[in-house]
């Protein structure tokens, strides 16, 4: 069981590392936001699963396990709303990537 918990932790950290590298190296706001989703979904979920398993099998505490599950659920529910509003707000505030985008249909439909 210990090994399973460790595997989940390592997978979570791998995706968190990937997301962090993405946040540092991506060229513009929207791409950075895409990379940050990596941390908030699989990175967080795997670590939450590890926490649930630890609480259930080592602490024998059902309440703690369920609270971790609720934390995971809350992050999954609130994260898309937050990133959607941030991306939309940034676009509406006039932030555009330096590198030309492949297509920009939002700009085409709302800017003229």
């Amino acid at each position: 069981m210990r090994i399973v918990i460790d595997i989940f932790l390592v997978i979570g950290l791998y995706f968190a590392l990937a997301g962090t590298i993405g946040i540092i190296k991506m060229p513009d706001v929207f791409s950075r936001m895409q990379a940050s989703t990596c941390v908030a979904t699989l990175g967080m979920l795997c670590i939450a699963i590890a926490g649930i398993l630890y609480a259930a099998f080592y602490m024998h505490n059902a309440g703690a396990a369920i609270k971790i599950a609720v934390i995971g659920l809350m992050v999954m529910v609130t994260n898309p709303i937050g990133s959607h509003v941030l991306a939309r707000g940034a676009y509406k505030a006039g932030i555009r990537p330096e590198q030309k985008m492949e297509v920009d249909e939002l700009g085409r439909d709302f800017d003229e």
Binding site: A18, K25, M26, S31, C38, Q99, E102
Partner: peptide
């Protein structure tokens, strides 16, 4: 996404 990030974030092609 992890592949893109570890690949140096250069082979991206963003758009809306």
């Amino acid at each position: 996404m992890a592949k893109i990030c570890f690949g140096g974030c250069t082979n991206i092609n963003p758009g809306i």
